[in-house]
């Protein structure tokens, strides 16, 4: 008896046997897209960061720019105090561990200190997360998480408020740029995140915090 795979492939080949349509090459089209894309892409890193901020704000996220390394923990401390936070979940990155180390009066829960299934239930009980994103995408206001650098996406997805730290020079123009420079092995499991989780499933009314975070703050650091 034939397997389903054999049946499907055979059917496809039979259906296509009359002719397989040829498609002209895309050289001219690619150039036109590139040209028009360039016309709307900022040329300096500062302008890119500005665009990134604008797009983030359009999708209901906050953007905080921190000029010097010394101010990172201070800013974070103030932000958490304003939000009356006394416990945070963090991802397992050197940068996040460093900037959260000196936070006063805040319990730090490192997601990767817990094995599955404790990890999911533990993180699910915490309201605020501080995590690291590998890249920012300026023209959509997205951040990119790779499993292999963060080792966990639970803090971002299970907490109500996520504070995302991102390096300023890792903000790139668009998805085309990102994919072009991607280490495919590293990026096998990843996720682009654009603002807080949302739904408009009831009468098209936008509500934030569908199943993921209600509030997203992005901190750009040197």
């Amino acid at each position: 008896m034939k397997s389903d795979k054999e049946i499907i492939l055979e059917n496809i080949r039979k259906s296509l046997s009359s002719s397989r349509n040829e498609v002209a090459n895309d050289i001219q089209l690619d150039n036109e897209i590139k040209e028009k894309l360039n016309s709307v892409t900022p040329s300096t890193q500062n302008e890119l960061i500005q665009q990134f901020q604008n797009e983030l704000e359009k999708v209901d996220a906050e953007f905080i720019n921190i000029e010097s390394n010394e101010n990172i923990s201070q800013t974070l401390q103030r932000l958490l105090q304003d939000g009356v936070v006394n416990e945070i979940a963090i991802s397992d990155d050197e940068l996040i561990c460093t900037i959260t180390e000196s936070l006063a009066d805040i319990t730090i829960v490192k997601a990767t200190d817990y094995e599955y299934p404790e990890r999911k239930s533990k993180i699910s009980q915490i309201n605020t997360a501080v995590v690291f994103a590998e890249n920012g995408i300026a023209d959509t206001g997205s951040v990119v998480f790779y499993y292999n650098t963060t080792n966990t996406t639970y803090p971002h997805f299970l907490c109500d408020w996520t504070i995302i730290a991102i390096k300023r020079d890792s903000i790139i123009a668009n998805q085309f740029e990102l994919i072009k420079n991607l280490d495919l092995e590293k990026a096998k499991n990843m996720v682009f995140v654009t603002g807080p989780s949302r739904t408009a499933d009831i009468e098209k009314t936008l509500v934030l915090g569908a199943h993921g975070p209600r509030r997203v703050s992005v901190i750009a650091i040197p």
Partner: peptide, 8 residues
């Protein structure tokens, strides 16, 4: 402009 999540 972009969906909120693009999962790979």
């Amino acid at each position: 402009k972009s969906s909120t999540y693009v999962n790979f």
